[in-house]
Nucleic acid binder design. Structure first.
Lengths: 326, 326
DNA sequence: CGGTTCGCTGCTCATGTGAGCATTGCGGCC
DNA sequence: GGCCGCAATGCTCACATGAGCAGCGAACCG
């Protein structure tokens, strides 16, 4: 009888029949230490597979690897559902959980807006915290089709967190640089931006560099604009600013017309939580984490693996080209 | 935080991060006993799923249930491969293992013949036992196309088991009852049958009641014959004798022309090992076990479940009718 | 042929863990 | 409002388990 088969027998008796290692030893004619060793071996070799099946499960080994490899303060990885349904909900739920358990409770929370942030807001129960003031960190109120979504997100988070919401009453992207300078000079806007810059915690998502982006959906950019950005290396946007795989601004001119805190301000933050999930966002996720735009990442398992998979930078190229082709 | 989610967190920290229950307690703000309880709960609820993945794995809980429900002396259940490939090999291997580990070592072993027995013979290594004499328990030498397969099986087992083989030099089924009586009266044959009746252990398989049976393959029966048997309730054959779902002889006239030990002799045996696996044999397996034709069953997981599934006797009907229809 | 090294075995001991029991807290019921 | 019953909690204690170590044997090399 080979050691392998013995491992299997021991594992069966231990895990399925709940026998003690000593009993198994007698049964198989081995010492209980040998049995213990066989069991360890069985787990190492993957003969015994322990799986945690639950929508709220997490992937701690991946989280640890992300923390270590990228010096993240924290990482939250939820399992990717087999058929992909409900992925955004699960990630949003995890983000809400994280925010809720965050200590010390943030005094002021800077938030971006978008579908992901909406979902997070929904999953934050009333009274999840007390006295959390929320401030919008990038523009985008007026043009959004689903009226006021950007505003309602921030307001909802502030309300359930027992604080005040401060909105940034400005478009996300203006047509001329001068307009941006002008609007930022306005006392109201300037005040909000100051507040945003002083937030103790940032919570934001990232959009993919394709037609499904909220910036396209909201009318700030055309499909053609996005295609051009992709051609120039864009992998996605963070607080309305398009970045390439290295986390650099793709189009300085466009960036100069974008209202909100800068990427460097985000990088300088003590605690910035990025919530990025889904197959379309693998590339942005990699860029965000790789260029230190966040200190905490909330994501799904597949995206986490994609981020960690530095061995295949080719895949990035491949994905980009595929998207260009379509 | 609900108890469910706590269970998940605890399970992750325990099984994936190998933390102690005490550490987890501190981490989640619970006592270590609470953590222990959460972990038990998690396993009961199936949140934690422990699986043993190995071709040689067994299904001990099913084995236990089979033993208890049917008063079997033993049951060996191997996992059914997802795509069904190699199933017969695995079961044969398990049967060989069982035979090899059998104590006391049988002095004389009565065997039937067929594809399954062939496979078992292949998996018995040289010297698996010493002094095991083998005797054929049902006829079938001459007509088999793959020349002498019935004979070689018995001889191979005897050789590797360090004993003598005694063959039953007779067809499995004769054309007339009188011929059977005559051949059984022959001293050679009678002697073998006596030996067969006195065997300390029987090892046999069962065939499905369809065209793929070895009895058809070997030319003893025509497709038409089998169809007729099925119409009369046959679910398969054991040592050449067709039985219905209750383990009764379907066609007494046919049975009367069949050479070999009787089913009652099999039932009276101290130790009789049936090796029956595969989707086509679910019904025979149920009949064999249900009518105490064996004291030990070696099979695959799916067949075991089918045997245990007494809640749906309808499925038997359904399967039979489906087969009749085709 | 002897010495050395390496890997496996069985052991001691400290630690981790589960069964069983007393205690607490909560909700229903008079 | 007070009492009862039940479930959840925290605890004691005995047992199960893994880490670390000494002993042994085999293989390898000089």
């Amino acid at each position: 009888m080979t050691d392998d088969v013995l491992s299997v027998r021991a594992a069966e008796l231990y895990y399925e029949e709940s026998k003690t290692q000593d009993e198994i030893g007698t049964l198989l004619g081995l010492t209980r230490w040998k049995v213990g060793r066989l069991l360890s071996r069985a787990r190492e070799l993957g003969i015994v597979r322990i799986e945690i099946v639950h929508p709220r499960a997490r992937r701690l080994p991946l989280e640890r690897e992300l923390r270590e490899r990228f010096g993240l303060r924290d990482a939250i990885v939820v399992p990717t559902p087999n058929d992909g349904t409900g992925l955004t909900q699960r990630v949003a739920e995890a983000a809400a959980d994280y925010l809720r358990a965050l200590r010390p409770v943030p005094r002021s929370l800077g938030v971006s807006w978008g579908r992901t942030l909406d979902d997070i807001a929904i999953h934050l129960p009333d009274g999840w915290a007390r006295g959390v003031d929320v401030v919008q960190i990038n523009g985008g109120v007026s043009l959004n089709r689903r009226a006021g979504s950007a505003a309602t997100t921030a307001v909802a988070i502030a309300r359930s967190g027992g604080g005040e919401a401060t909105l940034l009453p400005s478009p996300a992207i203006l047509e001329r640089r001068e307009t941006r300078l002008a609007i930022e000079a306005d006392r109201t806007i300037a005040g909000v931006l100051e507040l945003a810059a002083a937030a103790s915690v940032y919570l934001f998502s990232a959009g993919p560099a394709d037609g499904t982006s909220v910036l396209v959906d909201s009318g700030y950019l055309s499909h053609g604009d996005v295609e051009e950005l992709v051609r120039r290396g864009a992998v996605g946007d963070v607080v309305g600013r398009y970045i390439d795989a290295n986390g650099n601004i793709v189009d300085p001119e466009l960036d100069d017309r974008t209202v909100g805190i800068s990427l460097d301000q985000l990088r300088a933050a003590g605690l910035s939580i990025a919530v990025v999930a889904g197959p379309a966002k693998h590339d942005v996720a990699r860029a965000v984490v790789g260029s230190s735009l966040c200190t905490v990442l909330v994501t799904d398992e597949d995206t986490a693996r994609a981020v960690l998979d530095t061995n295949s930078p080719a895949s990035r190229q491949f994905n980009r080209q595929k998207r260009e082709a379509s």
